[in-house]
C-alpha cells in the first residue's frame, strides 16, 4: 500500500511538472508586450499549484486509472457478447 502511494505520488509529480510547465508557457505566451511580468508570475503560480495537486492526488488518480484500464476491456467484451446474442 505504501509503495503504491509512493509510486502514484511520483508519477503524479512527473505529470505535475509537465502540466506546470505547460501552464507557465501558456500564460507567458499570452502576456501583453508592454507588461509581461504579471502573466509570468501568474503562470508560475498556476504551474506550482498543478505540480502540488498532481503530486498530492497522484496515487488516487493512478488507482482510478487502473480501475478503468481493467473495467473498460471487460465492459467491451461483455457488450460484444451481448450484441452477438441478439437476433439479427
Amino acid at each position: 500500500m505504501v509503495e503504491f502511494l509512493w509510486i502514484g505520488s511520483a508519477l503524479g509529480a512527473v505529470v505535475g511538472v509537465l502540466h506546470g510547465i505547460y501552464l507557465y508557457r501558456q500564460q507567458s505566451a499570452s502576456a501583453p508586450a508592454n507588461d509581461p511580468t504579471r502573466n509570468r508570475a501568474v503562470g508560475l503560480y498556476y504551474g506550482l499549484w498543478a505540480f502540488v495537486l498532481w503530486t498530492l492526488f497522484g496515487a488516487y488518480v493512478l488507482a482510478f486509472w487502473i480501475l478503468g484500464a481493467v473495467a473498460w476491456p471487460i465492459k467491451r467484451l461483455v457488450s460484444r457478447v451481448v450484441r452477438s446474442d441478439r437476433p439479427v
Binding site: 505547460y22 482510478f64 486509472w65 478503468g68 473495467a71 473498460w72
Partner: peptide, 21 residues
Amino acid sequence: PSPVARWLHSLGKPLVWIFWR
C-alpha cells in the same frame, strides 16, 4: 485540444472512461 486534453484522452483514457461510467 490543449496538450493536457490530448494526453488525458490518449494515455489517460481509462481515467476518462471510469469517470463517465
